[in-house]
């Protein structure tokens, strides 16, 4: 009965694969009611490989390296600029073993979708790392600096197409913000949305659009080899090792950070929230996290408590106002 034996093997093989698959899924989705120090789930409201996923996994590594939490899982709930993750997270009332990654993009997405669930519905824990967006043009463009660009832009806002990430992203918001600051009606701008920085990059390299706004890290190499020219960056001060002027120093007061941080579920107690803050503070000081910041070219922007709350309030106001200006 050779056939039967082989069949048995096949059935067994399928069963093993199925159970392993189940186990993976289960491990990613489950969470008990133990203390955050024992078991912590980091929810990345993005697909594996997305920006917030990378952030969550870096944080996971840093926490592991100093043993501040015993067991850390990352789970992904992707979709709609993080708003799907947010709407699920607010339903986890009182879950003191779970933090969600958040950031500027989520505020934009919430405002854009007029979502009922906002960052007001969760407990703010900390802001950890920022990066900045840059305005770039193809190297063969006649535009040499920001003044040239603004001149061309003012003359013909519609003809000066700008490529960048999806609607509501930092790239998009910055386009509207800069337009406002230089006296162009944001609703007149011609923004070409791509699903990610990588795709937007091709449109800049192919010279389809006049310019592009993208996370500086995504275009840094192209700027270095000279296929793209960076005109200005959205940071407060010049970044160390980056020879690109800021919008601010060029007379356009548009400072905007693509920040990332953590929030806790609604309904947790003050002590439980404090526990989160302590965990974050501990791993933020680790060597692993410092390496992560360097590797990803993130700027340390550590902020907790009222300072963080004020920052988020201000972000929401500014974002809402820009989105309204863009006519969305």
């Amino acid at each position: 009965m050779v056939d039967k034996r082989i069949m048995g093997k096949v059935v067994y093989g399928v069963a093993v694969v199925a159970i392993a698959g189940l186990a993976f899924t289960n491990a990613a989705a489950s969470g008990g009611e133990s203390s955050a120090r024992n078991k912590l789930v980091l929810m990345a409201p993005a697909a594996p490989g997305g920006g917030w996923d990378g952030f969550a996994r870096e944080a996971q590594q840093a926490m592991k390296s100093i043993g501040t939490v015993n067991n850390i899982q990352v789970t992904n709930i992707p979709g709609a600029g993080g708003t799907i993750g947010l709407s699920q997270f607010v339903q986890m009332t009182g879950r003191h073993d779970m933090m969600m990654v958040t950031g500027g993009v989520m505020i934009g997405a919430v405002e854009l979708a007029n979502s009922d669930t906002t960052l007001d519905d969760v407990e703010l824990v900390a802001r950890l790392a920022d990066d900045y967006a840059a305005l770039v043009v193809p190297a063969k463009s006649d535009i040499q600096d920001l003044d040239d660009f603004i001149e061309v832009w003012r003359e013909d806002p519609g003809g000066t197409s700008i490529a960048g990430g999806s609607l509501g992203s930092i790239d998009h918001l910055l386009t509207g913000y800069v337009a406002q600051k230089v006296g162009i009606d944001p609703a007149d701008t011609n923004y070409i949305a791509y699903s990610g920085g990588g795709e937007a990059l091709t449109s800049m390299l192919s010279g389809t659009t006049v310019g592009g706004i993208s996370g500086y890290n995504e275009v840094a190499d192209q700027v270095e080899v000279g296929t793209l020219r960076a005109l200005a960056i959205s940071s407060e001060e010049r970044l160390p090792g980056v020879d690109v002027p800021t919008f601010k120093e060029l007379g356009v007061d548009a400072v905007m950070a693509n920040w990332r941080g953590f929030v806790g579920a609604p309904g947790i107690t003050e002590e439980q929230k404090q526990e989160f803050v302590e965990i974050v503070t501990e791993f933020r000081d680790s060597q692993q996290w410092r390496d992560a910041l360097e590797r990803n070219n993130w700027t340390d922007s550590f902020m907790v408590g009222d300072q963080f709350a004020d920052f988020v309030d201000n972000e929401i106001t500014v974002t809402a106002q820009i989105i309204e200006g863009l006519g969305l």
Binding site: G79, T83, I84, L112, A113, S166, L167, Y194
Partner: peptide
């Protein structure tokens, strides 16, 4: 993508993408 308009999602945010 280009306009941010929601199409045929029956109001379900899970279908936004």
């Amino acid at each position: 993508g280009p306009s941010g308009t929601v199409r045929y999602t029956l109001g379900l945010p899970q279908l936004f993408d």
